[in-house]
Design a protein around this nucleic acid. Sequence first.
DNA 1: TCATCTAATGTTAGCGCTATCTTTTAAGAG
DNA 2: CTCTTAAAAGATAGCGCTAACATTAGATGA
Lengths: 349, 349
Amino acid sequence: MNRDNTADKLGKSGSRSKGRVTLSDVAKVIGVSAITVSRALNDPEKVNPKLRVRIEQAVAELNYVPNRAARSLATSTTQTLAVVIPTISNTVFSNVLKGIYDYTTRHNYEVLFASTYYSLQNEEKLIAKLLAQHPDGIITTGLDITERSKAMLLSANIPLVQIMEVGTGDVIDMSVGFSHFDAGASMAKYLIEQGYRNIGFIGAQMDFRSQRRMQGFLSTLADAGLETDKYLLTTTTPSDIKLGGQLLADLMAKQPDVDAIFCNNDDLAYGAIFECQRRKLRIPEQIAIAGFNDLDASASINPSLTTVKTPLYEIGRSAAELLINTLKGRPILSKTLDLGFELIVRDSA
Amino acid sequence: MNRDNTADKLGKSGSRSKGRVTLSDVAKVIGVSAITVSRALNDPEKVNPKLRVRIEQAVAELNYVPNRAARSLATSTTQTLAVVIPTISNTVFSNVLKGIYDYTTRHNYEVLFASTYYSLQNEEKLIAKLLAQHPDGIITTGLDITERSKAMLLSANIPLVQIMEVGTGDVIDMSVGFSHFDAGASMAKYLIEQGYRNIGFIGAQMDFRSQRRMQGFLSTLADAGLETDKYLLTTTTPSDIKLGGQLLADLMAKQPDVDAIFCNNDDLAYGAIFECQRRKLRIPEQIAIAGFNDLDASASINPSLTTVKTPLYEIGRSAAELLINTLKGRPILSKTLDLGFELIVRDSA
DNA sequence: TCATCTAATGTTAGCGCTATCTTTTAAGAG
DNA sequence: CTCTTAAAAGATAGCGCTAACATTAGATGA
């Protein structure tokens, strides 16, 4: 790799520095003080337009790149938001992260993310690691959190948004999401209304939010006097499409009279639908399938999937917005934002 | 939000600091110098075990969180890798990013990412922004890059890995990927071998790599004396499942005698398969469908999808590994890593 | 003319950490 | 008991930037 040698030309090979071009290098070239260059870059109106132009040229010529670490140290702000999610390789969270990223980048903040892989112990370590970067704000997933994590977040003294759910547990600072319990309940209600009576549930991963969806779902079934445990099949194995087919197969082997299945997420539902296709089971006549999240494929699959649409991108966007508004001292209307969900009725149930 | 007041207790409310606990706070509490605390944390063997224990306790009690910005400034290393990808909300890149993240986090580096949304102009700006963080290394996507981006990357003087493809254009420093041209060619070869003669191609987004796949595909068709332009349908619209159905519909309307279609990626292929199902077209008897990437659903969909498996996670992992090995001064076997691809033959073609 | 104000620029110090060099303490060696 | 050596701890300065205050030049007006 060809290395740039501007710094060598500036004659600083002996110093502790890595030889990068600094503010005062630029300043020296023009013959002004470093602070003036700093102002020209950060507060342009404060410096004479002609000087500013000269400074900008010098910056471009020398290929000067500001050192954010030094800036952070001087201002005690990092222009960085930390994000803790379970995993990046799940469409649900990549959509959330996209929402965060898009808002954040427009407002000149950087995003540092970390994946817990659904472990609260990991989460603790990651929070500690991320806080060492002194982010200006932090986003974590879910309301279930260890005491130690909570203590660290509190003593970090920065705004925090807990995303994905509202309505359960204690919010530490702010939160954005929707009620998973209600979402599960609303799907149960819909299936009951459609006349299904032997209603099943298949779920994987079974993190806290999945459990809340299941609880909402089952309690509604119970209220209607329907079976809850009989048609229930869950595993803590991470969720994927293939697993959906397998869980459907297992459930049907155990309870052949099941007439509708709520899949804990769309991926499982896709797998279930594919398995039904293979078994030549007509959906929804012989068995109804419902999903959760309304991912991309749900509208296109055959039959199209009845599911619950969740505001993933918006959760991310709103969380970032809350943080940045807080940081800029703008008024926050509410510390808790329920973005709701929407039952999407299609052909599969 | 309840605020921690340890810092107030330490009596530093008048300073420029944000009131956080610092190394010398910890040092003062124990009655040693700051540098000793620093050593206890970064180079534990260098301090007396008994003292070390006391320091560790004080750190825990005071809830001390090191300031990475200060550390970066002092060491001119940030323990951060920058990643530039087209978009995070595409399974392809979220898998790559996961590979990067997993390796990186194990080696105590942070990841800063940015999305170009497939624009080289955006990429320029993002590279400039990311370099201001002085990452220790950087990963960018693709070998097509503007001169200005290249200049910035060169003068940043840090190791760089260009990911996703090898074998085309100039590599600036290192690269990891596979040949998209060859991958496209190999699918063409397979389809020809299977006896298809009116072979089509549908593609969306049509970024550089998609184009290279298409070129490889078409040139192989041409070599076999088959039509290339006639059964070709592409758009620069971002790719999604629904679009796959639409492109298939459009192509079949234009050229009803098409007997096989190579879809530029699996998402398009899923959409195409769903559309065929709706049209009651038997796959592969009436029309064969092939995809690219071998995403999760490809093995489960009906019929299961013949596709090209690409080493997405491994590309990310290897790129991170190359960077970190370079940074640690370990020998690099080769600056260019071709991880290849694999034709996965299933039922759809 | 001189005081008064504003705009533009400069000086100083410090953000929190660690590289580097120096000093102190402890442990052996003879 | 002194001398040598290693281990442990400290002092100092500096990484690159900007907050806070200080200075200078130029404009304004009575």
